[in-house]
């Protein structure tokens, strides 16, 4: 690693009340790379992302983005750099706002001009027809909604995208489209991704390095090739791999 990494998380701890759900997680993601987080349900993957994104301020440890350390309270400029896509495309779009309004909101907040053109361009970038622009979320399919969510994250031109299970609520044909889209966007815009998913195949498809979480700790960090080849050390990783491979063999 030459320059400082885009994301540097060191001994991150998060508690809710007296229950510690993230117990010292560390990882680094170089700029333009994709880091995958997998692990058991409830192991704290979403919690790590929410702490990174600034949604949850009650954490301790060290988080640095683009070389600059960030605290629990973030400046508005931070939100231009880091954006997040949520797990559930049905719950992450405001039910009473049109797609146009949803997409122009970040532009208005950051005082970016040229709203008209940017909204149209971003819609095209995520391959949504211009016709959806003035619809409401409930008039779109799950896949279209997730594209809107990705468009909203992209519109202020961030450098880092935090993806929380971006395809788990979508069907496999749409999943393939979204995964291709994410791969293209990363190449074109040199984005850095942190991708949370419970699907090993999805994570391995997109990410070069993968962290495995269990009970709030990162029990293993390995490369996608190692995972594919079955060179995992931790029993939990091995179990996850066996189950995934077992399902693939039709």
């Amino acid at each position: 690693m030459t320059a400082s990494p885009m994301i540097d998380v060191d001994r991150l701890r998060v508690s809710f009340g007296d229950k510690e759900v993230v117990k010292g997680v560390s990882f680094r993601v170089p700029a333009g790379e994709c880091f995958g987080l997998v692990g058991e349900s409830g192991s704290g993957k979403s919690t790590v992302l929410r702490a990174l994104s600034g949604l949850n301020g009650a954490w301790s440890g060290r988080i640095a983005v683009a070389g600059a350390e960030v605290g629990p309270k973030r400046h508005r400029a931070f939100f231009r750099k880091v954006q997040m896509v949520f797990q559930d495309p049905y719950g992450s779009l405001h039910p009473r706002q049109t797609i146009d309004r949803i997409l122009s909101e970040p532009l208005l907040v950051h005082g970016l001009g040229d709203v008209e053109r940017r909204v149209a361009a971003t819609l095209a970038e995520v391959a949504l027809p211009a016709a959806v622009r003035f619809r409401f979320p409930h008039q779109l399919s799950g896949g279209q909604r997730q594209r809107v969510a990705i468009a909203r994250a992209l519109i202020a031109e961030p450098e880092v995208l935090l993806l929380d299970e971006p395809t788990s609520a979508l069907d496999v044909s749409v999943q393939a489209e979204i995964l291709n889209l994410l791969a293209d966007l990363r190449r074109q815009r040199r984005l850095t991704y942190v991708l949370v998913s419970h699907n090993l195949a999805v994570v391995a498809h997109l990410c070069a390095r993968i962290g495995v979480m269990l009970g709030g700790e990162m029990v293993e960090e390995l490369s996608a090739e190692d995972l594919r080849a079955g060179r995992a050390q931790h029993p939990h990783t091995r179990e996850l791999r066996t189950l995934s491979v077992g399902l693939e063999e039709v």
């Binding site: 044909s173 393939a176 291709n180 791969a183 195949a201 391995a204 594919r228 791999r241 491979v245 693939e248």
Partner: peptide
């Protein structure tokens, strides 16, 4: 067949996923 084909695979990595 198309549905089966567009799944990412752990054992058989592909650069791009085919879409339906």
């Amino acid at each position: 067949r198309g549905l089966l084909d567009c799944l990412p695979s752990l054992t058989h990595p592909r650069e791009r996923l085919p879409v339906l």
